[in-house]
Design a protein around this nucleic acid. Structure first.
Length: 112
DNA sequence: CATTTGACGCTCT
DNA sequence: TAGAGCGCCAAAT
């Protein structure tokens, strides 16, 4: 059961819990699903997500407080910026955003 | 099968 | 603030 499919669904479940207007990091999502140290795999899971999607994938950024920009994303990095701006998250041209202020603190007591 | 590439992140210069 | 080095590991070549 510990294959790629279940890993992916775990990632999507966690990402779906990020509130509107708040942010989470790849490493944070990895920790949340019990995959410490596998931030990179979280990135791959999101890359596999077909767009558009109901999953708020755009709320996941890197630990440096920036959108991970890459030519290989074929524009999804810029779409991410637009989606964030659309929900009130300020993002500059370099992809920098106020991570400290908007970081999502998962509440253990939610969704019992 | 060997190597390289990444939507990553942490430590040390 | 900027890189380099390393650990991580799926996917691509």
């Amino acid at each position: 059961m510990g294959d790629r499919i279940s890993f992916d669904s775990s990632v999507l479940d966690a990402v779906s819990r990020i509130p509107r207007g708040r942010l989470a990091t790849y490493g944070q999502i990895a920790d949340l699903i019990g995959a410490y140290g596998r931030a990179r795999q979280v990135g791959w899971a999101l890359r596999r997500l077909p767009l558009p999607s109901e999953v708020p994938w755009h709320r996941v950024v890197n630990a440096q407080g920036r959108i991970s920009m890459s030519l290989s994303r074929e524009g999804s990095d810029w779409i991410q910026r637009e989606l964030l701006l659309a929900e009130g998250v300020p993002v500059d041209e370099e992809g920098r955003l106020p991570l400290k202020e908007l970081l999502w603190r998962p509440d253990a007591m939610s969704g019992s």
